[in-house]
Simulated assay, not measured.
Amino acid sequence: MDKNKKITVFSHLLVWIVLVSMPYMLSASTQQLNINRVVAHFWIPLGFYAVIFYFNYFVLIDRYLFVEKTLKFIAFNCLIIALFVFLKELIESTFFEELSRNFQVDKKNQGPPIRMFIYIQSISYMAPLLFAIAIKSTKRWVKIEAERKDAANVKLQSELQHLHYQLQPHFFFNSLNNIYSLVDVMPEQAKTSIHGLGKLMRYMLYETNMELVPLSKEIDFMKKYTDLMKLRVSDKTVVNYKFPSTDFGIKIAPLLFISLVENAFKHGVAANKESSIDINMTCENKTVFFTIENDNLPKKTNDKSGSGIGLQNLEKRLQLLYPKKHIFKTAIQDNRFKVTLQIETD
């Protein structure tokens, strides 16, 4: 028996022990107690309450109420309550004749009619029934809510995994395009680029499968990628980057920033124009601030390199990984494209 079941059993036993002991706890002296009266008017109804509660809790609610067989559920409980009202009267008249006789005398002299007492007894038997429904419904709701959260978490992980796998070929495709452009004109730089790409792909394949990675590794990855991309751009392009010297113990979802760096090199560089790319990252109180600026030199519509999924992928991942904990903005000002990304990591 696991810990939760043990706690449940102990709680039930404690409740029933308290209920059985109520006459003794409420009486000023045990000598004043009439044991026959306690048995007839308290313990026997209490036993009926227990039967109604547990029979509904373990059988009727699951079998009828939760499967929308409400009429059968009501009919069964009406029969059970009627049976217990009859049994209580039968037991009292058979085994507690004196109490029953005094009761009948009291009713003739001054009390309300017997039907009123039967009605009150019937109503009292509904208390354990309603209590069983309340507890069972609450447990069912908690279970359904937990299953819903588990299902949502599985869906979230599936979507994130899909986006992660989508990002890798996208990154690889863009990098190969860049290296391809170097093969004929700068074969030595192309070799260096292939070697550098191998290191980057090793990181992507073997170190980014975790939910969180140290920010320092992401910074190192971006530096290597930026240095790799600088090999293929002309002297007319200036690339500046500034990263924090320490990551302040911050862990972050992998590969969030690389799409922005890729986008800057893809849309901010032209062979025959002067341009610049400025990358800046700072950290403060477990919050990462990242900005990147580049000249706005969009590719022609017939240029399909990379298929344009990088920023869309990033936005989806941010919504899934950091809901209400991120700010992502893009803007074009003075023919410069600027991206601002702020992430609260904890």
Rank of each mutant, 00 (worst) to 15 (best):
F172Q: 08
A151N: 11
S175I: 09
R148M: 07
V142T: 14
M210R: 13
E97A: 11
Q168M: 10
F173H: 08
Q166A: 10
P112W: 05
H164I: 06
L215I: 03
F96K: 00
R101H: 13
I118G: 05
R101N: 09
Q110P: 00
K143E: 13
L129H: 01
N177E: 00
F171L: 12
K191H: 02
Q110W: 09
L130N: 00
R140N: 10
Y119H: 06
Q166L: 11
Q166G: 06
L182E: 05
S181E: 15
E211R: 08
N153Q: 14
S100E: 13
F171I: 13
Y206L: 12
S216E: 04
P187W: 00
V213M: 08
L205K: 09
I144C: 04
L200A: 05
D184N: 12
L205H: 09
F95T: 07
L130R: 00
F173R: 08
L130M: 05
A146G: 09
F103W: 09
K155P: 00
L212M: 06
V154F: 13
N102Q: 15
M201G: 05
T94R: 04
N178T: 11
N153I: 04
Q189C: 03
F131Y: 04
I179V: 12
K191Q: 05
L99V: 11
A127M: 10
T138K: 13
S122R: 04
S181H: 05
G198K: 06
E97S: 12
S124F: 07
L130E: 02
Y180C: 02
N174Q: 10
I120P: 02
D106Y: 09
S93H: 12
Y119E: 10
Y203K: 12
K143G: 03
S216C: 11
D150W: 12
D150I: 04
R202Q: 12
H164S: 09
A152N: 10
L130I: 08
Y165T: 11
D184G: 15
S93D: 07
S137G: 13
M210W: 14
S175A: 15
N178Q: 14
D150C: 01
L215S: 03
E207V: 06
K139Q: 14
L160V: 03
P128Y: 00
N109I: 15
F96T: 05
N209D: 10
